[in-house]
Design a protein around this nucleic acid. Sequence first.
DNA 1: CGTGTTTGACCAGCGC
DNA 2: GCGCTGGTCAAACACG
Length: 139
Amino acid sequence: MTSTTPAPEFEVSEFFMFESYNSTDDLSTVVSAYFQEASGGIRCSPTQVETSSRVDRSAEREARVRIAFKTESEIDSLDDGYKWRKYGKKMLKNSPNPRNYYKCSVNGCPVKKRIERDKYDTRYVITTYQDVHSHPTSN
DNA sequence: CGTGTTTGACCAGCGC
DNA sequence: GCGCTGGTCAAACACG
């Protein structure tokens, strides 16, 4: 590590950050629980996210929720109990690792998932969920 | 035959 | 106003 390394653990500013989970089973449980709670309108107000002007503008425009999970895993295909359809892959300018875009296969479900590897720690996988499932787990 | 994956192209937002 | 970056779409392909 160099002295000029800003190396923040995570660049979080517009979405909620959950703690790291080592087991996918636990992740699945947490994700499912979160979506079920969020579905009931417990939390996740876009105005509740941050206070930066840029973020507020973005959040206001999308009026959506973003949740980020950091998981230690070798594979990026983490099973969270939902079925996803990959719709895009992109190489980040500031990251040597590609980012995968997934969307929920359920009809009428607006939820999108973004999977990326931590550039500082490739053993960690960052899973970002957008929106909330309006249906229970199909599994 | 249906569904999911893949890959390049296209587009919109933001910075300079 | 132009260029860059990230995000999405869509056609073709691979697989069950």
